[in-house]
Write a protein that binds this DNA or RNA. Structure first.
Lengths: 213, 213
DNA sequence: CTCGCCTTTGACCAAAAGGTCAAAAGGAAT
DNA sequence: ATTCCTTTTGACCTTTTGGTCAAAGGCGAG
């Protein structure tokens, strides 16, 4: 339960406490679990500290409050989360670009379900801490990529449909396998430990049929 | 803040406190908000009581604990939630039956978003209180309807794809508009107050293209 | 070694929250 | 009106929890 030895990074300037722009912060990547499993109010600072191998006061030495910890995790997450969409290129094959995006998101659900749930929890609760980001950064990115897709459709390279809702559908379909994981397993029952291969096949068919002109 | 007058139902036998099989319980339907907005641990008994126009001790007179309140809401919800799937009939037109199911679920997202979020919250957190139901009642129903769909596909009346994942996709796509409501609005931006007409059109196209043989 | 600075923690605090209880308030039958 | 039963509530208790603090523990520079 207790850590041994110093956890300071080897070669990184650091100072804190009265410093608003801290340069070193403990890596909380492994601690998404608390918030993702119980939501913001459901997880306790003690718990998070334990997961991070820190004492509670020590954790609060690096972050001014529980809120700040949550926000930190969330914003760290956002970049990772948007990367696959950012990677959609105009000069690829349209269907391929979209299927690749879908597959990347599905992999993220499979490999980082807790992060997905952390995000889902925040949105479910009205996104109080990241609404700004959604309305600016996310909206801009989606608008851009939706424009790209609309272009492909206008050129007849994809069958026409609503690009924004297309993106929503990729999000919901892929994240479902992380966020509703328990339900998926309960319904599929024993003997279907890994639903992802079937999910990928299904989703590939789905989007191929939707988008093939 | 305070209620006036008696809240007893006019003509219903009732007794409680030491009675395990209470016949009267206050209607908490309007109180899904608390749990749906903040999750189980995020909402307080005081809050729920206030929403139900009861004092806290009075609420705890009808329900033995916060857990029991949550469970009550959840099980009340489950039936409503499954009704549309139950309504899928073998003797209809296959595509029509599925599109109708999808539309009903979408209407539920539009008209009862808080209930959808309450359910989503529970699943996100590992469904500790309803896992049983998922593994029995829900699984059985889904297996039955998946069989029905598989039959339609075998008969060539629908294009083949995985029936279980088809059902998952209907759930995720429709519930997305309730659960991730804030995100949908943030991304669509002002001037798109009501995303549902476009969502319905998009989803109709999606499933029509997937399933038309 | 010692000084000064950053880091870590045990002990503590105040507020919030789940739950209890005894007493008060209705209401119907007699 | 009295009695009996159910319903309602203010006050209270205990536990949990976010957050503080003063003191102790490194660690490098001189």
């Amino acid at each position: 339960m207790k850590r041994l030895g110093s956890r300071r990074p080897d070669d990184q300037a650091r100072r804190a406490h009265a410093d608003p722009a801290q340069e070193y912060r403990p890596d909380l990547r492994g601690c998404a679990f608390g918030f993702s499993a119980h939501g913001f109010r459901g997880s306790t600072v003690d718990q998070i500290a334990r997961e991070a191998n820190l004492s509670k006061p020590n954790l609060l030495y690096y972050f001014p409050s529980k809120e700040a910890i949550h926000q930190h995790l969330l914003s760290m997450l956002m970049d990772t989360w948007l990367a696959p969409l950012r990677a959609m290129r105009e000069d690829g094959d349209p269907l391929d670009e979209i299927l690749t995006y879908m597959r990347r998101k599905l992999e993220m659900s499979r490999d980082h379900p807790r992060e997905s749930r952390l995000f889902a929890n925040e949105i479910l609760q009205g996104a109080p801490r990241i609404l700004d980001m959604l309305e600016t950064e996310l909206k801009d990115l989606v608008d851009e990529k939706a424009g790209l897709i609309a272009g492909w459709m206008a050129d007849g390279r994809l069958a026409p449909s609503d690009p924004h809702h297309l993106i929503f559908s990729i999000w919901s379909l892929t994240q479902h396998y992380a966020d509703f994981d328990v339900q998926v397993h309960a319904v599929l029952g024993a003997g279907h430990d890994n639903p992802y291969p079937a999910a990928e096949a299904y989703l590939t068919t789905l989007f191929t049929r939707l988008l093939t002109p």
